[in-house]
C-alpha cells in the first residue's frame, strides 16, 4: 500500500511539474529577439537531448553488467533504458525538425546535429528491433548486451563524423537569466519522467519474464508422466 502511494505521488508530482513548466513557458519566459517564439522549443529540446544520452549510458552500463554477472535483470534494465532512449531521441528529432521547418523552411537538412540525432535514433531503434528476432533469452541478452556496448562506443564517432558535414546551425545562443531559469525548471519534469518510464519499463520486463518462466514451468509440470523405463519395470 505504502509503495503504491509512493508511485502515485511520484507520477502526480511529475505531471504537476510538467504542467507548471508549460505554464511558466507561456506566461513567464520572454521571447527571444532574433528567432522569435519558435526559439521556445529549445526549453524542451535541450533537457530531452541530455536525458537521451543518460538513457543510452544506462543501456551501456546495464549491458556491461549483464556480460559481467549474467543476471537477467540487467538485460531487463537495458531493454527498458533502450526504450526510453528511443522515445526521447524521437522527441529530439521531432522538435528539431519542427524548429528546422520554421527556421529554414524545410523539414530536413543534412546539418550535423540533425544527422547526429538521426543516426543515434537508428542505432537504438535497431537495438529494440533485433531483440524479438532472437529466440533464446540468454542469447538475446548476450547479443543485445554486446550491441549496447558497441553502440555506446559508436556515439562519439558519430559525433566526429557528422562534424564533417557543412553546418548552418547557429553556433550558440546567449540566454537571458529568465531563459536559463526556464531551462533549469524544464530539466525537472523531463528527468523525473525519464526515471519513471525507466522504472515502469523495467517492472514490465520483469513481469513478462516471470510469466514466461511460469509458463515454462507449467509445461514441464503438466507434461504426461514419462513411461517407465526398462530399469523401473524390472524393479
Amino acid at each position: 500500500m505504502n509503495r503504491k502511494c509512493l508511485v502515485y505521488g511520484f507520477w502526480s508530482v511529475t505531471l504537476a511539474l510538467f504542467v507548471a513548466s508549460v505554464a511558466m513557458l507561456f506566461l513567464y519566459t520572454p521571447i527571444e529577439k532574433t528567432m522569435g517564439p519558435v526559439q521556445k522549443i529549445f526549453y524542451l529540446h535541450l533537457p530531452i537531448a541530455i536525458n537521451t544520452f543518460l538513457a543510452c549510458f544506462v543501456v551501456f552500463i546495464a549491458s556491461i553488467g549483464y556480460l559481467w554477472q549474467r543476471k537477467m535483470w540487467w538485460d531487463d534494465l537495458a531493454f527498458a533504458a533502450g526504450k526510453v532512449a528511443v522515445l526521447y531521441c524521437s522527441v529530439v528529432l521531432l522538435t528539431g525538425m519542427i524548429w528546422g521547418k520554421s527556421a529554414w523552411g524545410s523539414w530536413w537538412t543534412w546539418s550535423p546535429r540533425l544527422t547526429f540525432s538521426l543516426v543515434l535514433w537508428l542505432l537504438f531503434v535497431v537495438y529494440l528491433m533485433i531483440r524479438p528476432s532472437i529466440d533464446s533469452p540468454q542469447r538475446r541478452a548476450m547479443i543485445s548486451a554486446v550491441y549496447g556496448i558497441v553502440a555506446f562506443i559508436d556515439v562519439p564517432f558519430v559525433y566526429l563524423s557528422v562534424k564533417l558535414l557543412p553546418d548552418i546551425h547557429p553556433a550558440s545562443i546567449a540566454l537571458a537569466p529568465a531563459m536559463k531559469l526556464t531551462v533549469l525548471v524544464w530539466f525537472l519534469p523531463i528527468t523525473l519522467l525519464a526515471l519513471g518510464l525507466l522504472r515502469a519499463g523495467y517492472l514490465l520486463n520483469r513481469q513478462i519474464r516471470t510469466e514466461s518462466q511460469r509458463n515454462q514451468n507449467m509445461v514441464f509440470e503438466s507434461a504426461p508422466p514419462a513411461s517407465p523405463t526398462p530399469m523401473e519395470e524390472l524393479a
Partner: peptide, 9 residues
Amino acid sequence: PLSLPVVIM
C-alpha cells in the same frame, strides 16, 4: 548502423 560513422566519415 554501427558502421554508419565510418561510412559518413
